[in-house]
Design a protein around this nucleic acid. Structure first.
Lengths: 235, 235
DNA sequence: ACCCCCAATTCATCCGATGAATACGAATGG
DNA sequence: CCATTCGTATTCATCGGATGAATTGGGGGT
């Protein structure tokens, strides 16, 4: 194994076994390189690899620190994976998201605070106003869609679950989905599905929330794989 | 944004928009560095970051290549995330795994070939023989457990789903779980649960397979957090 | 046709130097 | 005494070059 890989693993293990804790500052490049028995440039490449996976953070003029290591932070490199496969594998990512988001929405039904439920309503009102405009601002709808879903899943009680869901549809994928909705009918159907999820949450009904969330993501999946028949638009 | 981050994003976008395809060879360091307008050392750090996330692969004396970019490859950095959080967040990862593995096992019930079902039976026979031995070889049980689960989930029909499940319990987490089973009673219960999943698959019954898979992972969760306190406590 | 060896190519690693951003303490003014 | 300013030390960022190691491919020998 190369010297750099060894250095990466050494730092990783220092973190796993607790010698390096979240927020802690690492020795300066020169010292750490000497401690690991590698050149400064080699250490830099190891550190750079760990920075890329959000394990370390460097601040010029200050030092190198261990990040919070929170799952949400460390898992967010996954969205790039989803973006790469938007050609063939987008449906596979959405399938995973459907499974997880259904469960997360059910969990959130009994956990999300009342004021956040109200905020969800505001988001939907806003989205419907944007959708009613003659020239639809797709970027705005994308942002509102993301806010809607992440606000719900963030209250499922499991940060890892929320983070994985969040990254199963990267920004590029999400943008492609909404831009693909040239049919205003499809936009309105999506918003109705959001309303249905919201009503289930208001009723604090996990089962209804699960079903509506799954149906919603499934609708997106089917809109990708082929033209969707619109018989299920009335719920 | 730093020069290195810019270089990383540039290469990423070259991949996303198809200028770089899987398996393709990159220009030599000197040329690519010049093309991106950075020093060779700087480019190396960018390449190193992409190697760490399994997007690129370098072979000394040969060149730098784009990997297959398969989801299974790109997502396997996640297992490190799970390993870091084996102190507090192991239950959160297992929760996600339970949700996904239940569904994947149900999907596999109608898809896994007959000879793989037979192979699953062999794995269980082997595991029971190991467990019956006076001095239990935990490492062997860990390997058999991993083979059992991955053989099932690999037949769910969705490589992304299989990869995410695979990485929701990293090697360290899995090892800790089995080593925590000092009670031989717990080992035998686990093996009985595996048998139950296997029977459901033999019967080609998705619903039974889903339930037994979920119950199995739930049992592992409860063995970690302590019996009967499965309410997920946030962080 | 096959095998062995050598040279070219390419990445791996190391070294040293300069620039840029930050932190910290000293000097200054109120 | 406190706040602000400013210079200096520390630290990472970026650069250019030099040497070693692994692979590849061609040339020569059998």
């Amino acid at each position: 194994m190369g010297v750099i890989e060894t250095a990466i693993d050494t730092i990783k293990e220092m973190i796993i076994d607790g010698r390096l804790r979240p927020g802690q500052k690492l020795p300066v490049e020169k010292d750490l390189a000497e401690q690991l028995g590698v050149a400064r440039n080699t250490l830099r490449e190891a550190v750079r690899a760990l920075v890329a996976m959000r394990v370390l953070q460097t601040r010029q003029g200050d030092g190198t620190y261990v990040t919070s290591l929170s799952p949400g932070l460390l898992l967010d490199g996954m969205s790039f994976v989803a973006d790469i496969h938007l050609d063939a594998g987008a449906g596979q990512f959405l399938h995973v998201r459907r499974i997880l988001e259904a469960e997360a929405t059910a969990l959130a039904a009994t956990r999300i605070p009342g004021d956040d439920l109200a905020h969800l309503g505001d988001l939907l009102d806003h989205a419907e106003k944007v959708a009613a405009h003659p020239t639809i601002d797709h970027e705005k709808l994308i942002a509102l869609d993301q806010d809607f879903h992440s606000l719900i899943t963030s209250h499922c009680g499991n940060p890892v679950l929320a983070a994985v869901i969040q990254n199963m549809s990267g920004r590029t994928v999400r943008a492609r989905i909404w831009r693909g909705m040239t049919d205003p009918q499809a936009v309105h159907r999506t918003l109705r599905e959001h309303r249905a999820v919201h009503r289930a949450l208001l009723a604090r009904d996990p089962d209804r929330a699960r079903l509506h969330a799954a149906l919603h993501v499934l609708g997106v999946e089917e809109s990708l794989t082929g033209p969707r028949t619109c018989e299920s638009t009335d719920d």
